[in-house]
Amino acid sequence: MTQIAISILLWGSAIGCGLIAGLYFAFSIFIMNALGRLGQGQGAAAMNSINETILRSAFMPLFFGTTVSAAMVALLGLFRWGAPGATAMLAGGVVYVLGMFVCTVVFNVPLNNELARAGADDVVWEQYLKDWTWWNHVRTVASVVAMLLFILALLDTRSALS
């Protein structure tokens, strides 16, 4: 793969991670707090609406596209082991795929499904707020760390060319 293609893939991964991190950061810092202040019925209904809407939004191609590009970057890092930026490429891809994608599939999505089934159940909503937000923090940190590692890989590969 040419250096230009690798740079494009790294830039796309870094930007995708940054966009995803920003969304997750907003949920972690203020959106979930605001929903929690609404009370169980309104908060759960609002979150269920968000969960339904996001599935039909531009978020989904960004979510899956960034995951695929991060996995490709990780594989490139593995196959180019020893080349400038390879360690950061592999680490960034692994951090993103495990910390964001796997976390989402294993924790956040099942919590969303449980909330959709339960509706406005008091106990489910209170536990959902705690658990979902905790795993969202993990996704946020993983997305930021991966973005930084992809930027580091870009810097390493550029400095090797000069």
Rank of each mutant, 00 (worst) to 15 (best):
A14G: 04
I15N: 11
V95M: 05
L9P: 12
I15E: 10
A86D: 09
A88N: 07
L111V: 01
I29A: 15
W134Q: 09
T157D: 12
S28V: 06
S28G: 08
N108P: 01
I50A: 08
L155K: 11
Q3C: 02
L35P: 00
T133R: 14
D122T: 00
T87N: 10
G93H: 06
A46T: 02
S69F: 13
T2H: 13
G43I: 01
Y24K: 04
I31S: 07
S162M: 09
A34L: 14
A74S: 06
L78Q: 08
A142E: 02
A153C: 04
F63M: 05
A58H: 11
R80V: 00
M60Y: 04
M100G: 01
D121L: 00
F150N: 07
P61C: 08
A160T: 06
D156C: 09
I20L: 15
A142D: 03
A83S: 14
E114L: 10
R56L: 13
D121C: 00
A116R: 06
E52T: 11
V138P: 02
A120K: 00
L98H: 02
R56M: 09
G119P: 00
V94M: 11
F150R: 01
F150L: 12
G65R: 11
V102I: 15
A83Q: 14
G16H: 08
S143P: 02
T157P: 01
F101A: 04
N112F: 07
A146P: 07
Q3Y: 07
V141S: 10
F59S: 06
N136C: 07
L155S: 10
A88W: 12
L78T: 09
E126Y: 01
Y96C: 05
L38M: 15
A146D: 07
P84N: 10
G92I: 10
E52R: 15
L19Y: 09
N48E: 10
L38Q: 11
A45P: 00
A45T: 09
N48L: 03
S143R: 04
L35A: 07
